[in-house]
Write a protein that binds this DNA or RNA. Structure first.
Length: 561
RNA sequence: CGGGGCGUGGCGCAGCCUGGUAGCGCGCUUGCUUUGGGAGCAAGAAGUCGGCGGUUCAAAUCCGCCCGCCCCGACCA
């Protein structure tokens, strides 16, 4: 490709609306343009990257025997009602009516459709196992699109679904996907982790996420040197007990001190000796959630236990506890109570449910009854539950996930098969997703430098950037054209910058675009009989004779793989 | 959905407080020069100042409503 014919509008300055590195660079390098919140146009260079990523995914999916198909984006609401998700998902799903007034939705995922298909076509255990996949656009009316292409309302996604006769076979497919995903992310040149994850609305039993470490990520994971790795949504840890005082209920006047910080410094005690009480409302009434004063509540863990909930409003807090938020506690309350395990067996200070007062000497399990479960948020430095080493916490971009769905969808949609004994059974399913745009953004986040993007060879828009410094100089032009033709013949993907612009601009654009190798053809070095090859990553440079350039490039490309 | 910020040629911004002929840098066009790290000179094109309404002799500027975009939080297969 010649730069004079390629549409790649580069920008000298960062776009005002961009915050994340990948967002800034992808816009500046002319890869994408934003149409509206969470909607992006992929320009030629961006689309080339996306296609390469998709090709790698397709290659690896095919390699584990998955079969690609294409499914409608527009779907009848009826099928989503059958699994119950039409009602549970809410505003995140785009909904519309067709001309006949029928309720339709725009697909945000395809469990319903694929299971519908399986329910009609799979009859016998002889038809199984099957693994079907699609690489298609999904639509979600995100509450908050952000960070460029990292969270958008429309995005392509590879989704695969496995259908098996039993848990063992599902286990096999799950494992195959794990291996396949690892190969995909390795081939894409990413640093990544596999962590335990919360199955969430997928409603499955086991789930893992593939995460690319990056400060631009939205998720956090807890990691241990022993290999323990989990999304903070469900990560667990061990924490030490403080030295507890004597038990024995005693009311304390704590006028105008409400927060944990205020109370602990007012009383001269450490926050770990307090109980933090949070009142939330569920469909079944109020629930008091409690963690130690120095800890934070992990909402997703609580949600697992009590279902959908929201923080109580001030007047609700008053009604339930008789006090304002700063003075509430478990003692004497007759509502559902959920306490973090770290509270079991200690002696604490907490709100007295009386304005201006706290109560000390509170023994959980004795002075109040509660369900003791893990509902606190893991923090760096706490101990691993597997090996007791200190945990680290890292910010990550979710680039893929795998779920064991079980029979959640097959039962709802009647996807069954007859086993060897002629008995009807629900198909055991798994669901596996990868976001190509997130792979691209994660690569930019992880590998860019102050000059621009540094693409891995496997997903670079072009492998070689051929900078022709003096396109009007007959000798330079001839040498460049010859090299260009040789590269094409050798199967090298090359972008030849033949624009009549200053060398400085050419170099800056080359570094911004981030192709792995740059070849410079200029009159100065040509007179001395050489060309320069620069490796984008690290920017090491070497001189080669024009005749040896293609071989040198091929060698370097292999080296960089 | 709650909180905050922003909206002025293609891009990045100033001007708004204190109302009075719309400005800067980059980019773009033409010409000449330059040609190994974002060139110089000259001449030019390009803006309903997000929208609607109000106040005023006069609104980019003041007031109200709305829309859009970004950030934090909630949410998130």
């Amino acid at each position: 490709m010649r730069a004079t014919r390629l549409f790649f509008p580069t920008l000298k300055e960062d776009p005002a609306e961009a915050e994340a590195i990948s967002h800034k660079l992808m816009v500046r390098a002319g890869l994408v343009r934003q149409l509206a919140a969470g909607l992006y146009i992929y320009l030629p260079l961006g689309f080339r990257v996306l296609r390469k990523i998709v090709a790698i995914i397709r290659d690896e999916m095919d390699a584990i025997g998955a079969q690609e198909m294409e499914m409608p984006v527009l779907q009848p609401a009826e099928i989503w009602r059958e699994t119950g998700r039409y009602d549970t998902i809410g505003e995140e799903m785009f909904r519309l009516k067709d001309r006949g007034g029928r309720d339709m939705v725009l697909g945000m995922t395809h469990e319903e459709i694929i299971t519908w298909l399986a329910s009609r076509e799979i009859r016998s255990y002889r038809d199984l196992p099957q693994v079907w996949y699609q690489i298609q656009t999904k639509l979600r009316d995100e509450a908050r699109p952000k960070s460029g292409v990292l969270r958008t309302r429309e995005f392509i996604m590879k989704d695969s679904y496995s259908f098996d006769t039993d848990e063992r076979a599902l286990e096999e497919n799950y494992y195959l996907h794990q291996k396949s995903y690892k190969r995909i992310f390795e081939r894409c040149g990413l640093e990544f982790l596999m962590v335990e994850s919360d199955p969430g609305m997928m409603g499955g039993a086991t789930a893992h996420e593939f995460m690319a470490p990056s400060p631009a990520g939205e998720d956090e994971v807890a990691l241990c040197s022993c290999g323990y790795a989990a999304n903070l949504e469900l990560a667990a840890s061990a924490i030490d007990n403080p030295a507890f005082p004597e038990p024995g209920l005693e009311e304390l006047a704590t006028p105008d001190v409400r927060t944990i910080d205020e109370v602990s410094s007012f009383l001269g005690i450490e926050p770990a000796l307090m109980i933090k009480s949070i009142l939330v409302m569920t469909a079944d009434g109020p629930v008091l959630a409690m963690v130690r004063g120095d800890q934070e509540l992990q909402e997703s863990k609580l949600a697992h236990l009590i279902g959908e909930h929201r923080p109580a409003r001030p007047e609700e807090i008053r009604e339930v506890t008789g006090a304002e938020a700063g003075f509430i506690g478990p003692v004497g309350l007759d509502i559902r109570m959920v306490a973090d395990r770290s509270l079991d067996g200690g002696v604490f200070i907490t709100g007295a449910n009386k304005d201006g007062h706290h109560v000390e000497g509170v023994v959980p399990g004795k002075d109040f009854q509660a369900e003791f479960v893990d509902i606190r948020r893991v923090r760096a430095g706490e101990k691993c539950i597997e090996c007791n080493s200190p945990l680290s916490v890292e910010r990550v971009i979710e680039i893929g996930n795998i779920f064991k769905l079980g029979t959640r969808y097959s039962e709802a949609l009647g996807a069954t098969f007859l086993d060897e004994e002629g008995k009807e059974k629900p198909i055991i399913m798994g669901s596996y997703g990868i976001g190509p745009a997130r792979i691209a953004a994660a690569a930019v986040e992880q590998l860019s430098d102050e000059k621009g993007i540094v693409w891995p060879v496997s997903i670079a828009p072009f492998e070689v950037h051929l900078a022709v410094l003096q396109p009007d100089d007959a000798e330079v032009s001839a040498a460049a054209e010859k090299l260009y033709a040789e590269m094409l013949a050798a199967g090298i993907e090359v972008l030849m910058d033949d624009r009549r612009i200053n060398p400085g601009v050419k170099f800056a654009d080359a570094e911004l675009l981030g192709c792995p190798l740059r070849v410079t053809v200029g009159s100065r070095s040509l007179k001395e009989g050489f060309l320069e090859i620069q490796v984008r990553q690290g920017r090491g440079e070497r001189k080669v004779a024009p005749d040896e350039a293609v071989d040198a490039l091929l060698d370097l490309l292999i080296e960089l793989q």
